[in-house]
Every structure is written in C-alpha cells, then in structure tokens.
Simulated assay, not measured.
Amino acid sequence: MTPGATAPVRLADIVSGLGGELHGDDQRVITRIASLESADETSLSFLAQARFKPLLQATRAGCVLVRADMLPLVPEGASAIVTPDPYLYYARLTRWWLARKRQSDTVGVHGSAVIGQGVVIHPTATVGAFAVIGDRAVIGEHAVIGSHTEVGADAVVGSATRIASRVAFGHDCRIGARGTIHSGAVIGADGFGFAPFEGRWEKIEQLGTVVIGDDVDVGANTCIDRGALDDTVLSDGVKLDNLIQIAHNVRIGAHTAMAGCVGVAGSARIGAGCTFGGAAMILGHLEIGDGVHISAASVVMSSILKPGQYSGVFPIDDNGSWEKNAATLRQLHTLRTRLRALEKKITP
C-alpha cells in the first residue's frame, strides 16, 4: 500500500468534517495525503508558504489546500480547498485522517498486565500486554497504556492520554488529558543530585515528582526528571521532541516547544510560547521569559527576559576560514584594549 494511504474518501466528506471552501468536484476521491512533489491524481496536498509556488504550479495532486490568493495558481483540472491557514488545516486533516485509519484500541486490561492494589482503571481505558500498573494508580477515561509500559504507584494518567509501549512513568507522576508519551520516554527518574563529601559523592534523594498538564506531547527517549524538593512542571500544551533532557525542578510554560536533543539544566524557569531549536542548551537556575525563541545549537548562559529571537551559534564555514575567525575571536578582548589605547592617544 502507498505510504499514508487509507480507504478512499470524497472531498465532500473532508470539507464536511473540517470546513473550508471547496473549488472543484466534491465527489473526487482522495486516497492519501502527500507532498506537492510526490502527489498524484488521488492525493491531497497543501501549499504552506508562498516560496513554494513553483511546486504548486507543477503538482499532479488531485486537490490542494491553499489560501485564496493562491487559488489562481492551482493547476487546471485539480480541485482546491481554500482556507486562511493551509498548514493548520493540514494539521487537523492529519488527525482526522489517522482517526479513520487507526484501528480502535481494544478496551480493557490485557490478561498479561500486572495490576497493583487499589488501582482505578476507567472502564473505557486500555492497558496493553505486559504493562505494569503500580498500587493506587489512576488511569482515566479512554486513556491508553501501551504494552510493556510501567505506570508507578500513585501515578495519575488523564483522560484520552496515550502512553506508548516501553515507557517508564514513575511513581506519583501526573499527566493531564489528551497527552501523548512516545516509546522509550522516562518520566520521573531521579534528578541528578549529589553532595560532595571527602572526595566522593553522597546521593540526594529526589523527593518531588513530575506534573504534566493537558495536551502535552513527549517524544521518544525523552527524559523528564522528578524534582529534588519542588516538582518538575510542564504546563498545558508543551511539545517536546525526541531525545530531550529536562532536569529536576525545571518549569516550562504553556505551549512552549522544543526540538530534538535540547537540554535544560536543573531549576531553569522557561516561559510560555517559547521555542528552542535542536540541540539548544539552557544552563541551570536561569529564567527565560515568555515569547523567547532560541536558535538551534545555541547555549543559553544567562537569563533572557525580553521576547525575541536569540542565536548563539558560531556560523559554519569551511574549516580554514572557521579556524582563522575563531583565532581572531579569541583575540577580541586584546584588540579592544589596544583600540581603546589608540583612541586615547589620538583623541584631543
């Protein structure tokens, strides 16, 4: 089967479910969602940015999502759904599409699952094969616990939250409604806390937990450590990519998003509506205000309170040029001192 293909659907069904202004045959059958380049006559695609207009004009897609001003560029014979924000429409279409394609979860507890004492599992929830649910844990309405996943004692999983297979969701941790945690994630491992004593390290027990709000996505193999004393907190709508490290006592504001391999050191406070490019690093005990956007691979070494885009990456170059520029940069303070001395000599 072609990737992304599902049972055929009419354009009329899509517009009925998601809205938009249809131009063309409402009985046209769509079998998959595709990029403009790979689309064929039974595919639906979208134009998110004007700079891709040449791809729109050359596409073979049977239907495209476009803004009204792009409608004249739709190839002859293709249908179009006009919407103010094609990318947002595409996002909602993927969820609508997957809901039709995905097999319904088998409601109930698999016979191989291990269920502790005093556990509350809603009758509409799903607990997969070989899952382990600790004592007094609560699994909410329509929640899904994947196979081989462990939910610790006294943990709470909110309604319609999906935890994939092989996730460790630690004791006392909580996640709200409609969340997603992908495979390999570890929620509520001990934070990195040790006290130095006579040349060795004494462990500091981590007594807090992890509190996750509603509509939060946690990527594969991402780790969120429990707090040392206070909790580690992710507010509503936070989106974390794969392979991210969130250290103990970190607080992340609503609808902040982080790309893969970001690292946030302990007790950092991050505001709402922020974005962090891949491999960005935030040092501990810093404060990042609302609406701050950090470029990929940047290292944040001091607090940032003013909204805006910040970059801290030495630009890539051929190695010879990079070494010369780096060597010059190392001498910058000396050059500054010499320049000031010269200014004093020539200034009356």
Score class of each variant (00 low, 15 high):
Thr6Gly: 14
Pro8Lys: 11
Arg10His: 03
Val15Pro: 02
Gly17Glu: 14
Leu18Thr: 10
Leu18Cys: 06
Glu21Ala: 13
Asp25Lys: 01
Asp26Leu: 06
Gln27Glu: 09
Val29Ala: 06
Thr31Lys: 04
Arg32Thr: 06
Ile33Leu: 12
Ala34Asp: 14
Ala34Gln: 07
Leu36Tyr: 08
Glu41Ser: 05
Thr42Leu: 02
Thr42Ala: 07
Ser43Arg: 06
Leu44Val: 02
Phe46Thr: 04
Gln49Val: 13
Lys53Glu: 13
Leu56Val: 02
Thr59Val: 02
Arg60Gln: 09
Leu65Met: 09
Val66Lys: 12
Val66Gly: 08
Ala68Arg: 15
Leu71Ala: 14
Pro75Glu: 10
Pro75His: 09
Glu76Cys: 03
Glu76Phe: 00
Gly77Thr: 11
Val82Thr: 09
Val82Arg: 00
Val82Asn: 12
Pro84Glu: 10
Pro86Trp: 08
Tyr89Phe: 15
Thr94Arg: 08
Arg100Cys: 06
Lys101Arg: 13
Asp105Cys: 00
Gly111Tyr: 10
Gly111Pro: 02
Ala113Val: 14
Val119Thr: 05
Val120Cys: 07
Val120Pro: 00
Ile121Ser: 04
Ile121Ala: 05
Thr124His: 01
Val132Lys: 01
Gly140Ile: 04
Glu141Phe: 08
Glu141Met: 07
Ala143Thr: 07
Ser147Lys: 04
His148Met: 06
Gly152Met: 10
Asp154His: 11
Ser159Gln: 12
Ser159Cys: 05
Ile163Val: 08
Ser165Leu: 01
Arg166Gln: 15
Ala168Lys: 00
His171Pro: 09
Arg174His: 10
Ile175Phe: 01
Ile181Met: 12
Ile181Phe: 02
Ser183Cys: 08
Asp190Thr: 10
Ala195Ile: 13
Ala195Cys: 09
Pro196Trp: 07
Phe197Ala: 14
Trp201Val: 13
Lys203Ala: 15
Lys203Glu: 15
Gly208Arg: 09
Gly208Phe: 03
Val210Ile: 12
Asp217Lys: 06
Asp217Ile: 05
Val218Arg: 11
Val218Tyr: 10
Ala220Met: 01
Thr232Gln: 10
Val238Lys: 00
Lys239Phe: 05
Ala247Cys: 09
Ile252Val: 12
Ala257Asn: 05
Ala259Glu: 08
Gly260Asp: 02
Val264Lys: 05
Ala265Arg: 14
Ile270Cys: 01
Cys274Pro: 08
Gly277Gln: 03
Ala280Asn: 01
Ala280His: 04
Leu286Lys: 01
Glu287Trp: 00
Asp290Ser: 04
Ala297Gly: 04
Ala297Phe: 06
Val299Asp: 08
Val299Asn: 07
Ser303Arg: 14
Ser303Glu: 13
Ile304Trp: 01
Ile304Gly: 01
Leu305His: 02
Phe314Lys: 04
Phe314His: 03
Asp318Gln: 13
Asn319Asp: 13
Gly320Ala: 15
Ser321Thr: 14
Ala326Tyr: 15
Arg330Glu: 09
Arg340Phe: 07
Ala341His: 12
